[in-house]
Design a protein around this nucleic acid. Sequence first.
DNA 1: CCCATTTACGGGTAGATACCCAATTAATGG
DNA 2: CCATTAATTGGGTATCTACCCGTAAATGGG
Lengths: 132, 132
Amino acid sequence: MATKCYCIALRKAERRVTSVYDEALKPAGVNIAQFSLMRTIEREAPVSLSKIGRLAELDRSTVGRNVKVLERMGLVKTLHGEDQREAAVVLTARGRSVLVDGAKLWDEAQTMIEKRLGVVATRQLKTLLQTL
Amino acid sequence: MATKCYCIALRKAERRVTSVYDEALKPAGVNIAQFSLMRTIEREAPVSLSKIGRLAELDRSTVGRNVKVLERMGLVKTLHGEDQREAAVVLTARGRSVLVDGAKLWDEAQTMIEKRLGVVATRQLKTLLQTL
DNA sequence: CCCATTTACGGGTAGATACCCAATTAATGG
DNA sequence: CCATTAATTGGGTATCTACCCGTAAATGGG
């Protein structure tokens, strides 16, 4: 029951919560990692892989690979601007549509978590996750 | 700064905390996922992949693959008991030695997290992660 | 005792993640 | 203006993770 290791407990919780969000987002055809990546791209577009990485706290190579998956799915595309090194990632029309559909589903997942925790614990969670 | 999505915040925290433990365990030659898996095997040996999966809340196929890595590293080995279907996973001598070395390093990581959070937040964290 | 169901694995496929190294392009200091 | 340094990618390699499917073994009814 009680996992002594904070890290392992955190990893278990991460898997459980991720699956709640993934399940909720299924109708939109993306998982939470992809959804979040697309939201960052939407907010910052056109944006380089490095910048996405800094914002999402992900390795650049990870971002590159994840973006490639979204490209294959037709949800984002990569252009090139002045700086020939940089990729300029933007959403496609279908990508924007997925974000619209996903927003409602994401809200449901958020609410589900808040309901599971209650008001006090939810606030605690926010604080803790920022500190960790 | 403030990630609104509980899931994304949780995933970020998971990556950060995991890297703290992975870094701490480096001298032992394993990461936190492997260390935890080995501890489960130590506690339950000889144990089947399915049972490990239930205990660790991991898919059986995941456990199978992770155990294979530990086998390649010479830290565990798989025997077979009465039930011909079941694998009976046990630690090797080297595996036990890694657990001994790792225990101190793991303690350091645990302490690091407790120090980062303080007593109150640490207790809150435990409760929250159990609820999630 | 035999067949249907359940249980346990293994492999295929695929995504998320990170580290390292090489190549290309930009920027900067002399 | 050129050489050195810095920044951006891409690809190789490797883990961790999960889902699905097929196979083999155990189990429980009839």
